[in-house]
Amino acid sequence: MDEILRVEGISKTFTLSKKQQKIERTTLRKKVAVDNLSFTANRGEIFGLLGPNGAGKTTTLRILATLIKPDTGDAVLDGYSVVNEEEEVRSRIAFLTSELKLEDFFTPNYLFDFFARLHGVPEAEAAERKRTLFERFGIDKFAEVKVKNLSTGMKQKASIVISLAHNPDIIIFDEPTNGLDVLTARSVTDFLAEMRQQGKTIILSTHIFSLVEKLCDRVGIIIDGRMTHCDTLDAIRDGLSLEDRFFEIYKTVKGGEE
């Protein structure tokens, strides 16, 4: 197996503001979002981070995408450190999360060219890729419509296509089907499977069991910022449905605390 991602003991602690303390219903000033997390992912597989709300999935993915830095630990993506070689990492990944938005004023067509240029993609190559991707996602129909006038599903598709402008090897996808109707969700999962076929590595996060069962080759279960289990889907399931197995794990972890 060709290892493309190695996460080594990353931790991330946030200092909470007064307002956040209220939301989290805590008097603690610090929140450990990710706690000494390690895992690996192999080239060409879909790796799923599964965990409940607030488990630290998004935080982990943001660290991998170099938007934030871990307090300790490091992750090596395709041989490059997310701590010290951010630019190399950034040119090899696509990062998709609801936090990253496209500018309302522009059209998918303009934004694709814009991001291709920022990634230094040669013009002809970018044009060819745009043609294929726009066709594949049916974006041709709204390529010249400003982002602000697109529906949620169209926006999600546009985001995906634009994030692929530089043909990255690794796709980091936070909650791929959140907020999408069944049709759009289906086209997104189909697309992820297709990307795997093309040899790309996909790291996704979700709290939806069916998505993991349908797509993922390997799974990491995150609870309270810690990776409690990390294995192939079948090994994790251990003969049960993923849902039942998850609650078993959850009970042991939480039960041990009390």
Partner: peptide, 17 residues
Amino acid sequence: GEKERGTIATLLVTPMR
């Protein structure tokens, strides 16, 4: 405004300096 709307973060994941 770009920060508020989350569009600057999209720029920050590109390899641009």
